[in-house]
Amino acid sequence: MTNRIAELRKARKISQVELADGVDVTRQTIISLESGRYNASLLLAHKIARYFGLTIEEVFLFEEETT
């Protein structure tokens, strides 16, 4: 799963600290989400999407594995 958090945050000129405060997590969690090292829970994904005024699908990109 990839996400557009960094892109959306920079476009809106929001700092990592501001986003972390807005969705009630630590800055370290935002850093991990942006770098793709950590996948958000459904609750956090919902909070982040709502923070940007978008849907979860518009922020988080689910890539189905092809076998």
Binding site: D24, V25, T26, Q28, T29, S32, Y38, A40, S41, L43, L44
Partner: peptide
């Protein structure tokens, strides 16, 4: 912030 760090889902 301290309280948040304790309940942060990544932590």
């Amino acid at each position: 912030d301290l309280k948040r760090a304790e309940t942060d889902e990544r932590n």
